[in-house]
Design a protein around this nucleic acid. Sequence first.
RNA 1: GCGGGAAUGGCGGAAUUGGCAGACGCGCUAGAUUCAGGUUCUAGUGAGCAAUACGCUCAUGCAGGUUCAAGUCCUGUUUCCCGCACCA
Length: 807
Amino acid sequence: MNHRELPAYTPATIEKKWQDHWDEKGTFYAESSHDKPKFYGLIEFPYPSGAGLHVGHPRSNTAMDILCRKRRMEGFNVLFPIGYDAFGLPTENYAIKNHIHPAVVTRDNIARFTKQLKMLGFSFDYSREINTTDPKYYKWTQWIFLKMYEAGLAYKQEMPINWCTSCKVGLANEEVVGGVCERCGSEVVRRVKSQWMLRITDYAQKLLNGLDEVDYIEKVKTQQRNWIGRSEGAEVDFTLSTGDKLRVFTTRPDTLFGATYMVISPEHPLLEQHKAIIKNHDEIVQYREAAARKSDFERTELNKDKTGLAIDGITATNPVTGKEIPVWVSDYVLMSYGTGAIMAVPGHDERDWAFASKFRLPIVEVVAGGDIEQGAYTDIQDGTMVNSGFLDGMKVADAKKSIIDWLVEKGLGERKVNFKLRDWVFSRQRYWGEPIPVVHCAHCGYVPLNEDQLPLTLPEVDSYMPTETGESPLAAITDWVNTTCPKCGGPAQRETDTMPQWAGSSWYFLRYMDPFNDEQLASPEALNYWSPVDWYNGGLEHTTLHLLYSRFWHRFLYDIGVVPTKEPYKKRTSHGMILGPDGEKMSKSRGNVINPDDIVHELGADSFRMYEMFMGAFDQAIPWSTDGARGCKRFLDRVWRLMDMLVDTGKVSSDMAFDVHSTIKKVTEDFERMKFNTAIAQMMTLVNQFYQKGSITRGELKILIQLLNPVAPHITEEINALCELGVELSQTKWPIYDEKALVRQTVEVALQINGKVRGRMEIPADLTQDAAQEYFMALDEVKRALGDKQVKKLVFVPGRLVNIVVG
RNA sequence: GCGGGAAUGGCGGAAUUGGCAGACGCGCUAGAUUCAGGUUCUAGUGAGCAAUACGCUCAUGCAGGUUCAAGUCCUGUUUCCCGCACCA
């Protein structure tokens, strides 16, 4: 091309042109044929909030877009879908405030999101878009719930909710700030309500084992393992003065001789059973009410002042020492973990030590090695048992085995594995969620709907406010609530709580495989071809909830034969958060929110995408810098002007071969490792080299724009078209580097004397270890640097350095 | 508190996992282009000492240690960020 004809680089027109082109052609729709190898790339589907797209979304989306575009060029049939996780609290609250139906709000927000996503040029398959609030979608969310109910994994239990005493509504944890209602500032109490629960704890071991089979970044695995919190120990029965047994769970049965008191949770049923003989029962009830106002998090804080009450009227007997010990009530013991009761060993547990010190309870040393006057000694490696009868002299690990065997033999306890993981509270007292497809019948109890009664759709209501009794707004729609029992045909009432937002997101990746199937959640053919998700990128904040919940549902679906793989996601990676320019988390209240629309308007989508990938390490939190984004625009301007120095040959010139091929290698490898920032830096270096040289061949330009295409798809397609370099880049093959081009004759190494760099030199690249000593000692610069000093040792690292150690 | 991370120039970061610390970009300085601003191009840019030897010293949160060699490994320590089960 004659440089006088070079048009200006105008991102707005170029980007719109290619986006429309991709839309019309369906360029990025997954192929219906199952002949090619598949690649399923997934990003977490967004919640369509009223605020629109956040700069955080494109970070994950661009990364996966790069990988998917590369995979297509590598010959894969790629599924890269998009949808919306649209049930949720903010939409509902907006609907309450503005008296607009949440479905309308959702529809508008989705339209806005889709427009924004298209503006960024993501290669999503928009033909498969799903929406969790669509009855055709949530029919299958409800269906999975029915299957879980059938399998005995759904049950009802009394669970506390946050209750605002002024608004008279249940609140999400997020709406409770410092113990008071976020909206009105009134006191929030925990109020017990019968709720649907899912037995994720039945799957604790399977979810733990499954982690060994998948390729997740290590910190995600570690965090899930800790969340599941498997601990091995024992349950031990203590005999109470009332004659009955109090069972505790402990991970340290070896310290049983040091148990000097017991503590039970304020909610422990024992307290009501023995109401009559507990002299300070009234005081305990007051304490329980106070505890109900605190979260578990507040209750178990280690550094807070411990509170508690001794039960006046009941004592226990330590089964090994035979000593009578007091029983206390304290809120640091939770009913939801273990048995809701513990044996306290203040000598060897920090919380017990703090509690015993405060209430002047006896502290006995049973593991020697620390100083229990100063604090609990918790080391389990080096300690030796003392004051422990038949365990004396043993190491902790051996003592643990011996005591459990002894307890089992005497019928006083048993080996027990416990998990920190708790069952999933599956009810919300809300309107904008999937109705739970169950009725309550006076004769039959809880009865699930029949499959052919699905979907159970949300009825129209006038007010989305929860009712004053703590029931969801659905409870007020009597026409809807009153129904007939699917089993006996008698009168029955529908469940009025809805499912949590996590429900729809626990299986959405399956629906993408076959999004419009009315007969099944997805066809077996589609599931077999596309399962599992090959690569799932998302935020670390979803590690312990969404990621674990969806693994649970998927594993259940595998167990009942619906899906072909045990694990839903083969690989999981996480991106870091984008912070405001001030280095703080972006938030409206701080006023440091960057709007993607503004950046795209000023610089274009390609520069925006590129900056999001270039700004820093993909997995780390990075503050936003619009100047940095402008730097990426500057780079794309330079790429555009390469067309001015184009030389009309298809070949890669020999003096550029090394740089071009090492760039192919680096970009190819760095994309796979999600090191987008260094891949881009390498391309910048290469472009700088073309500028130094003052020319670029057509062959070189073609390779450069192919490598850059996944990051900046619009400008590269435009250059390709303007220079008539061949078919559209989306249809080309990913470049392969030539090993031969990477071989060098000489290589620069550093010369070190005693570990300090004293110079650099070009040496033959093929110098061997043996030849090195002779070679270096003969060099003038080495002789000069050494003077008359004695050489003790010579360390040669091929291709890097030589270190001469002198005396 | 529990769990998971992080710390490198003025700023964002890089460093092939024990081998030349600061790639690449931002910002800044000087020069060229321009009526001017912007753009673009060229050169420089960790700190200090030097002063033509193009050399030396220091430097990866802090304090030790291992090693020919440490941002990287070990021990201790400080600070900051994220999650904590009804936000998504």
